[in-house]
């Protein structure tokens, strides 16, 4: 039996309407505000489903199926990991992009940014940790260790946002094998 393959989207919530007079914070950092604690994983996945239905209708919702789930949500750092089937991850991504506000009890204007698409949840978690470190580094005025830029030989670019394109489809062959048991 062929195992169902998933994709894990690392999602970031940005708040560009945040108060620009936030004090000494640089403008770029002011966009990375915390999310309201009313946002729960269940609520988030429900709102993603609604967004998919709004954009792609019943067909899109059916393609996503039961696989869609919010595996991790941190309101303090405004990041989340969303699991979705591999063949439909672009639908989920597009629905997230077209999202303009958070669901009912939270109600805020938001920009949802997909930071990374990964084949395993482990890689997604590593990305979350790396980004959190980076933001802390920027907040304290010290540039965090910028692994990707270092590897690419681009050096450290102070004052710029994250780095380039999301790495896509790269972890396919090292997926965690928790589903392999029922293979026989």
């Amino acid at each position: 039996m062929v195992r169902v393959k998933n994709r894990y989207l690392v999602v970031e919530f940005l708040y560009p309407t945040s108060n620009p007079t936030l004090g000494a914070l640089p403008a770029a950092l002011a966009f990375h505000g915390p999310t309201s604690d009313f946002l729960t994983p269940g609520l988030l996945s429900k709102s993603i489903r609604n967004a998919i239905e709004g954009l792609f209708g019943q067909i899109g919702l059916g393609q996503v199926g039961n696989t869609l789930a919010v595996k991790y949500l941190s309101t303090a750092t405004s990041t989340a990991i969303v699991r979705c089937p591999r063949h439909a991850f672009r639908l989920v991504w597009a629905a997230l992009t077209c999202t303009t506000s958070l669901p009912a009890p939270v109600r805020g204007s938001v920009v949802v940014r997909v930071v990374r698409v990964s084949g395993t949840i482990r890689k997604a978690e590593e990305e979350v940790v790396r980004r959190a470190k980076k933001i802390v580094g920027r907040a304290t005025g010290v540039e965090g260790d910028d692994v990707v830029m270092g590897v690419l030989g681009l050096g450290k670019e102070v004052g710029r946002g994250g780095e380039g394109l999301n790495v896509d489809d790269d972890d396919d062959d090292e997926e965690d094998d928790e589903d392999l048991g029922d293979g026989g």
Binding site: V111, R113, L165
Partner: peptide, 19 residues
Amino acid sequence: RTALAARAPADVINLAASV
């Protein structure tokens, strides 16, 4: 017209690709 309507390059690429 507002910052809220802007999206990251990768998101735009995906939007164009899937929609």
